[in-house]
Nucleic acid binder design. Structure first.
Lengths: 257, 257
DNA sequence: GTCTATACCACGATAGAC
DNA sequence: GTCTATCGTGGTATAGAC
């Protein structure tokens, strides 16, 4: 669904031309960056703002000041190049999530609001990423969320593989804090919530909504807390919901009949 | 993120060739379908299974047995063609949702589980669509969910425009059933839930999960009920969650500090 | 008004020279 | 490792036939 507007091409060529000039002059003083790394950096920057289909190999290789054929030589294909860029980032994100979960479990969860705390450890690294403008900021989250719904099989299997270990750890953590919830119900709810988090961070309705509430002169931690105060109780209540209450089922059955 | 596998092209050409033959022989007996409609039908079928970037105008015009230039003549561009296909479907979906909401409100909501019932009216038309294999079935839902996270501005504004009226009606309905929830909190939670529904139906983790629970010989209504019994209480609990409880905030603050 | 044939430029990929 | 040349396919624009 991405076709860059034709009339924007002139401007973008200029921007690209400028970044080449910068790269070239910088390479005189700084230690030389390998072709491979120059391609990776250029890819990440373009990929984040324009998506997979919106980023051409010609744009990447022009930005990186390398030959067009270099991508296929070093990475095999455009897909493999993007898979590498994506996994690098996802692994870093999940590593932070696990680190936070380790710290939380070592310190001991809140006896009442442990579920909220686990949810927070899922969100906080993503929020930090959204603020990291040097690495794409919120655009990277949009990219991640979009990847979740991508039709290409290689993307789906890549994500499933990269998230599997982290999701298992978090499921176990939730299970300890939600002893009354069956494994079947927990799995389903967790799937739903994880998809939702990705979608919401991607669609950025929720983020935009929150930034509309912003008051000036707040620190990052206060921003994060504000976000969590809205979402963690909301999601925690969902996870704690009772299952299969007869009267509740009856109220729904009235609609499907 | 969509590059059709090269080795599949031969098979797909055959399929396409077959559908042309069918269309031609059918046009002898049935009333002639206009060029415009043939393009729309072919687009929908291809769009649903292969996505926007995966569907070429050449594939569409071959399937529809029209000239390549016909698309640009009748629709202006590939984007406009797809926007038309998408809006046709989204409007139909939302119409059904509103019809169900009207019926529910006319009959009177359940005094205790009204929120669950409103959630059900959001889901039921989508579930019916997922079963409608003649019109793409689950693939169309995946397409819709994907569109939510699409980077192209024209998709985002199209969706916002098409969902605005429906979302406003549903927000009002929820507000009546959730009198304690402030407008700000409700907006945010609704955004989150609507994004989630789209994402979950798209990622089809949840749907797959449910179909794994299937027992044989169930009717469609029973399938829908099964789905709703899992999700409606879960989402309703989230909407009903209390806001800004001091101790809950304290448990979260411990993590951001 | 419709439709066709055709040309144009950008894309990803690759073979072969250096 | 790097580069040039080139292939097949993509979206789009238009001249001219009906």
């Amino acid at each position: 669904m991405s076709s860059p507007p034709v009339f924007a091409l002139d401007l973008e060529s200029l921007i690209r031309a400028k970044s080449i000039a910068t790269a070239v002059s910088a390479s005189d003083s700084r230690p030389k960056i390998s072709t491979k790394d120059r391609i990776l950096n250029a890819t990440e920057a373009l990929f984040i703002t324009r998506g997979f289909d919106g980023t051409s190999l010609r744009a990447i290789t022009t930005d990186a000041a390398v030959n067009l054929a270099a991508v296929n030589y070093h990475f095999g294909s455009k897909e493999e190049l993007f898979a590498l860029v994506l996994t690098r980032r996802i692994d870093a994100l999940n590593e932070q999530r696990l680190r936070r979960l380790d710290a939380l479990e070592a310190k001991g969860l809140d006896s009442v609001y442990g579920v909220e705390q686990i949810i927070a450890t899922l969100f906080l690294p993503a929020l930090a990423l959204a603020r990291d403008e040097a690495h794409g900021g919120a655009d990277f989250l949009r990219l991640l969320g979009r990847a979740y719904a991508d039709p290409a099989p290689f993307v789906r299997s890549l994500l499933a593989e990269r998230y599997a270990a982290t999701n298992a750890r978090f499921k176990a953590a939730f299970a300890r804090s939600l002893p009354d919830l069956g494994g079947e119900d927990l799995s389903m709810r967790l799937h739903f919530i994880l998809d939702s988090v990705a979608a919401s961070l991607a669609a950025d309705d929720v983020r935009r909504h929150l930034s509309g509430l912003k008051v000036s002169a707040r620190t990052n931690d206060e921003d994060d807390l504000q976000f969590l105060v809205y979402l963690a109780p909301f999601l925690a209540a969902a996870l704690r919901a009772a299952v299969r209450q007869p009267q509740q089922i009856a109220a729904l059955r009235a609609l499907t009949a």
